[in-house]
Design a protein around this nucleic acid. Structure first.
Lengths: 219, 219
DNA sequence: TGATCAATAGGTATATATACCCACTCATTC
DNA sequence: GAATGAGTGGGTATATATACCTATTGATCA
């Protein structure tokens, strides 16, 4: 709550749709704690403006799909060179990969353009207080990924306990000989287990086994 | 917005701390669209109440740590047998694993007990409208995971484009001979690339390469 | 203009994995 | 009591990967 009623927060908006810029401006018109200190029509222009005077902006609101430099790229560059500047990413829709990219680009927030004024302001407040704000619609997406992982995890049950044990050691980069020594059994026995595991998992090579194991959370 | 001022939403609260139950009740006292239709002191009791009369409740608010049956288990059981009942999970703190479990258990929401009335009501409204609500403090946790992945992803840059290409084919379970045929180069060249990749990635076997590739998002 | 590196290709080994075959013991199950 | 499956061990192949070595071409760079 550092910026309660002291110096207003200087915002730079980057979007190649003037309509969106105007919309944000009108939303913030009545909010005296925020000031639109600059507008950019694409990512490169935004970065140039920041580079020219890094202390001029405290917050960057950027569209995700822009010509020249996408919002993700812009975010990465800003966070790398001017980490003190907060970044809020605007997107038209939620897709798993885009959200992941936004997270990886160290964005402080991610909201949809369809977001209403109330939520938009909440996002701004949180980010400005050093927090983050991500659209609520994101979680169900990530949730679906965990669901898939969960489903595949049941495939491990087709392997016997001993086979799972051996598979785990294979993934740890041990050879059949090493595994045999570790389990006090013959290398031949390990080889036979490997053969059975290959059949059960319908894999053809060790590479397939490793992928199977990792998919099913055996690490 | 189906339940605006029509039938109030019947809520079942499951928590082994009477204080929490009372706190929620007082929060909802002035909200006429919600009615506390039942209270349970542990997970099993809650499930029994729902089983006895499934149509009695539309929403379950449950603590995550309860004796007999945890909130996660309760959520799973409810979602399996009575999928039309919404579930909001309450927790004392955010941990990666717990949040993951909540997501996997198909919870409609997850908030901290420290959540204020405003956010609590927003969560209820969203869930009631068929949406989800997850505490904002969750994303930074997941975000950190992607950060770790990201850090490792930079390791891919130590490989040349050709090496990355070959590594990708290795992970697709191709042999050196097959890769050579596919890229119109000699098997020996592929072998040399493999050797270089092993050195650069500090791996000793193909298994290590596969793990390296998957860690770095090369699938 | 040397130096460096990626990409190419070959030689010669050994190490490891894969594909079949076989047999025995033990516990469970029908 | 016969059948089944897991776990054990062996034989005999071939296929594949790994560890070294050398060498040429082309591009980039200080």
């Amino acid at each position: 709550m550092m910026n309660a009623s002291l110096t207003p927060v200087a915002i730079l908006i980057a979007d190649d749709h003037q309509l969106v810029i105007d919309g944000i401006k009108s939303m913030l018109a009545t909010e005296k704690q925020y000031i639109i200190a600059g507008e950019a029509i694409n990512g490169q222009a935004a970065f140039d403006m920041i580079s020219a005077n890094p202390n001029r902006f405290q917050l960057l609101i950027t569209d995700i799909s822009m010509s020249h430099l996408t919002g993700i790229e812009l975010c990465k560059m800003v966070k790398t060179r001017f980490p003190e500047i907060k970044v809020l990413i605007l997107s038209m829709y939620n897709s798993v990969t885009v959200v992941k990219e936004a997270l990886a680009a160290e964005a402080d927030g991610y909201i949809l353009k369809s977001t209403g004024k109330d939520e938009f302001l909440i996002a701004l407040h949180r980010i400005n207080d050093g927090g983050t704000y991500f659209s609520q619609d994101i979680l169900p997406i990530i949730y679906n990924q965990y669901q898939k992982e969960k489903q595949q995890q049941d495939q491990l049950t087709i392997l016997s306990p001993r086979e799972k044990e051996i598979l785990a050691l294979i993934v740890k980069e041990h050879t059949s000989e090493e595994i045999g020594a570790k389990l006090f059994i013959s290398k031949k026995t390990v080889d036979n287990h490997r053969q059975n595991i290959l059949e059960k998992t319908q894999c053809k090579t060790t590479v397939g086994l490793v992928k199977f194991a990792i998919r099913n959370g055996l690490e």
